[in-house]
Amino acid sequence: MKTIEIDDELYQYIASKTEFIGESASDILRRLLAANSELSAAAVKSKIVESTVAAQTEAETTDVEIADEVQEETLLVEDVAEQKTLTSCQNIFDLINKEELAMERGAVGRFLNILGNLHRVHPKQFSAVLDIRGRDRLYFAQSEEELLATGSSSKPKQIPDSDYWVITNSNTTKKKLMLTDVAQVLGYNNEQAESIRDFL
């Protein structure tokens, strides 16, 4: 056994840690050092746990931030889509410009302008106009050739900004009837259809 010298203050500290009568200074020191190393091990474990929790929290926070960013971008995309939908669901009466109609050359120009605006408002439903026809004659088609095949004097014209064609050789009364039919197949009620017809 080795002998070491310690000051009185340290000796008093060691003596105060005695747990039972007869416990030697070596036993007390061994116990204190073991406890201290356990504390150190516990402290290390605690630090590891703290870092792991901090890393998880940071990862979760990052995930939440990313999810928030994705959600914000999704909302922006949805807002843009909704705006486009609102634009495409505008009312025909908001688009028709009476001054612009008045500047059109005759009934054919006004007729095409009104049909073009109806197509702008209802691009997806507009194909329903293909079912509007006379007894032996097409009024609407997706090509000039289709209309010419049912009558050489039909004077087909393309509806502005669309893939649809319409005959234009009919009189104004017939054009008004065609506009009424178009409005009705696009879902307008009778009163609205008459208002659209009256733009001609």
Rank of each mutant, 00 (worst) to 15 (best):
K2W: 12
I6K: 14
E9M: 05
Y11P: 15
E19N: 13
G22N: 05
E23F: 04
S24Y: 01
S26D: 08
S26C: 03
D27A: 00
L29T: 00
R31A: 02
L33T: 00
A34P: 15
N36D: 11
S37Q: 13
L39K: 09
A41D: 12
V44W: 08
V44M: 06
V49N: 15
S51W: 11
S51N: 12
S51L: 10
A54S: 14
A55Q: 14
E58R: 13
T62A: 06
D63M: 02
I66H: 14
A67M: 07
D68E: 08
V70L: 15
E73Q: 12
E73W: 11
E78M: 14
E78A: 02
E82W: 06
T85R: 15
L86M: 07
D94H: 13
I96P: 15
L101V: 01
A102G: 05
M103F: 05
R105W: 03
G109H: 03
G109P: 15
N117K: 14
N117V: 00
L118M: 08
H122Q: 06
A128Q: 14
L130A: 01
I132P: 15
I132E: 13
G134S: 00
G134C: 06
D136G: 07
Y139S: 04
A141D: 05
Q142K: 11
A149H: 13
T150L: 04
Q158Y: 07
Q158A: 06
W165P: 15
S170A: 01
S170H: 11
T173C: 09
T173G: 09
K174Q: 13
K175D: 04
K176Y: 04
L177H: 07
M178V: 00
T180L: 07
Q184K: 13
E191M: 06
E191L: 03
A193H: 12
F199Q: 10
